[in-house]
Design a protein around this nucleic acid. Structure first.
Lengths: 201, 201, 201, 201
DNA sequence: GATGAATGAGCCTTCATTCAT
DNA sequence: TATGAATGAAGGCTCATTCAT
């Protein structure tokens, strides 16, 4: 029988994660010390270790929360009958998020996770699963498009979907390095790809 | 009057860098200790610090050498008159490298650098300049394609080039996370994009 | 709300300083490693660095505490109306301290500080201020003596005070090098100086 | 049969010592690295180790050379029949040297040696012997003065001599810490002492 | 003798983690 | 549960010294 409401537990956990994410976005995982997280959260070392077994778990928990938020982005799309329109609206949601300061901060952490995935299997699974979801969604859309005739039947849905996701990942990288990539510019490039999907007549 | 040829200096430097790159690919920058580099290189701490001021400089030097090797990849393309063929051959060179073990190891380090670029301005400049080069090359090809009529005049060369590079970056990420992306699959997706470039709308 | 009284903080600080002083007296500042202080204090490295930022600060803190103890010595003198007697009793307090083992150990550290003052401005200020205090006191006594007629009006109080202090410093040096300087011998020499102060010329 | 003239040997040795003294005066013994001496001398590590077994020997050699130069100072006095005049001229030589930049630099090193004497027996012997010489000289003068009636017979020559030397040492300290001690001021104080010596009539 | 690249022991310092209160 | 002083293993780096040329 927990004396403290599990709700309070979750709130405290969330506080810590938020503080950690701020630190991680600012300095990266390995430059961030637990002391930094302590200062940022206003809590104590003991308290943090009461909620997480250590720094690694903190990173993984951040990975988990990022994962959830990315999924939420996908769910925003309006279920249109026009497959190309649906793809376009997914893209637009993604690119729009990338222009906002908060979205950018989240991507800074994401890039850390992408690198961390090379060493931490838990993180790699999070990252990979975070990519398979949109790929599966797009594959599904493409198949429907092929059925309806909107998309060239020679297109391999899996490869095309993977490439689209790859393109967005690359754009995230470039944005993070300070390159200017406007939503219009990126949508233009995306439309080229969509044109290719529909091209063979 | 140095008894040892200045040549030896460069060789020793290269030895250290190679050892460091192996360690970095294996464990990442921040998990790699100087002690690791010492063991890997068979040299001593003092010797390494005689050639590099510290770990940061070691990372930057690795970034510099990666930079050089990536540029070399671009130079391999045969200067064909057919713009689309040229783009395809650039893509093929890139993707081929990605299937080789050595290419993959180099990309593991590259991903570390991509993340490091968020914190180290020297690395960021290296990374950014390493991306502007292929973009400029592709922009040039696209312009020529538009002149010759092979490419849709509505295409914005800059955005399209950026998107192509982004796509390759994303594919690198996915490969590094253990996803299977065959050259054929990636070339197929690339061809979709090329079709979009050529499409009359 | 600290669970531990701030008092404990000061006690711990004092423990560290005492350990450091023992080490410094034994081996000098630069031969003493933090490791030595750790062993002597029975504490851990982290603990010491929680109270002092490094060795330099430790040295300065030692300088500060020496400073305080020296001031205390001066305060011991009984405020007699006879200026020469007052000077003599200051001298006696000083020389007496120099015969005790503890006083000698403290002087060993003081000599280190004297040398350190050449390089560390904080220490130099401590040392200089530690010398200006007795000089000011003696100047004051001499002026009073001149008013009362006990001391030759031609005497320049500042220079004479400085010379007296210098004499004591030199005696400290000689004692530290193992020379035998008895209190009687030193007092005899001091009396010669006092005789000079009183002399009609 | 040495292939190189022993003269050359000595010259090289002197070069090294001069470079070392400059470094030592600037940064102290323990802040000075052999590398510093190498740079200052323009020679190589191996060369220095060909002439000295290590840093400690270098310090001791510096101590030895200081020793010699101080003795030289004493020899400058003109052998007057007036004992008080002789003492005064010794004092003047000493104090004059202290106003010159070069004399000050030498004293900076001397202070290092004074501190070093606590730990290095060779240095302590040098320092002590460097003090006994002037003391012996002054004792001799005082005895002669007592014979001639110029100096109070109650004066204990040994203690008085020691005190005079002590006074000069203290003045050196104060000068090194940046205090302004003019020759006139110091001579005035010295004269007070001399007056004390002659005082009892 | 002279050179200077290389050595490696050992120093200072950090920081993830623990535990008595 | 929360606190935060204390721990101590381990990392980055320096520098006196050596030795092949």
């Amino acid at each position: 029988m927990p004396k403290v409401k599990p709700e309070t537990l979750a709130i405290r956990r969330e506080e810590i994660l938020q503080a950690a994410e701020i630190c991680f976005a600012r300095q990266g995982f390995h430059q961030t010390t637990i002391q930094d997280v302590i200062k940022q959260s206003g809590l104590s070392a003991g308290c943090i270790y009461g909620h997480f077994t250590g720094k690694e778990e903190l990173i993984q928990a951040i990975g988990e929360s990022r994962h959830g938020r990315d999924s939420a982005l996908l769910a925003l799309k309006d279920p249109s009958d026009d497959v190309l329109q649906s793809l376009r609206s997914i893209a637009r949601a993604f690119l729009g998020d990338l222009q906002k300061e908060e979205g950018l901060r989240a991507r800074r952490v994401a890039l850390q996770l992408w690198a961390e995935a090379l060493r931490d299997d838990v993180v790699r699974d999070q990252v990979v699963s975070g990519i398979r979801q949109p790929i599966a969604l797009i594959v599904d859309l493409l198949r429907r498009g092929q059925k309806s005739g909107a998309i060239d039947p020679h297109v391999q849905p899996r490869g095309a979907a993977r490439a689209m996701v790859a393109m967005f990942q690359g754009i995230v990288l470039q944005r993070l390095w300070g390159e200017t990539v406007s939503t219009a510019e990126a949508m233009h490039a995306f439309d080229i790809f969509l044109a290719g999907l529909a091209a063979r007549r």
